[in-house]
């Protein structure tokens, strides 16, 4: 089971966080801080897995963004890497060549896509097509229900 997923930039700025275990905010912040510093200190050729407290960390860098997951001791590390990759593929397909800014400004979409991929820390749907279909259906519903939306400030 995945315990949490963090997306952060090379500069150490957290971009997205998803927790599958309940922690108080303070602890979440502490964990985040610790992991960001630990991972940013690692060199590119190093192993993508590390033992951390009583769980395993699996991380991968895509351009300026680090994707970092904590999984349980007996989870499969390689496949966790591929969960990350699948998520990146989904973002990429949805946004069309995704960049860090897409995630900053469309964080809600990033969350919706993640929710279609994983629930409660377990993979729900591995098919890229099916996830994108579900997201497209949401988008249709959004537009149908809010035809008059025209944002002005």
């Amino acid at each position: 089971m995945m315990l949490f997923m963090l997306l952060f930039s090379r500069q150490g700025k957290l971009r997205l966080q998803k927790w599958y275990v309940a922690h108080p905010d303070k602890l979440k912040k502490k964990i985040t801080r610790e992991l960001i510093t630990t991972i940013l200190a690692r060199k590119p050729k190093m192993c993508s897995f590390l033992e951390w407290k009583d769980c395993k960390i699996v991380y991968k860098r895509y351009a300026s963004l680090y994707f970092c997951c904590a999984v349980e001791q007996n989870d499969n590390e390689l496949l966790t890497l591929e969960i990350i990759h699948r998520y990146v593929e989904l973002l990429d397909k949805y946004f069309g060549s995704v960049c860090e800014l897409d995630i900053i400004f469309n964080f809600e979409k990033a969350y919706f896509i993640l929710d279609e991929l994983l629930i409660g820390g377990e993979i729900q749907e591995t098919s890229k097509k099916n996830v994108l279909k579900a997201i497209a259906a949401q988008d249709v519903l959004q537009e149908v229900s809010t035809p008059e939306d025209n944002y002005e400030l």
């Binding site: 351009a63 300026s64 963004l65 990429d92 069309g96 995704v98 960049c99 860090e100």
Partner: peptide, 13 residues
């Protein structure tokens, strides 16, 4: 700006 660097996750496009 400083933190974004406009790096694309993929360079294509």
């Amino acid at each position: 700006f400083q933190v974004c660097h406009w790096n694309r996750l993929k360079t294509k496009g």
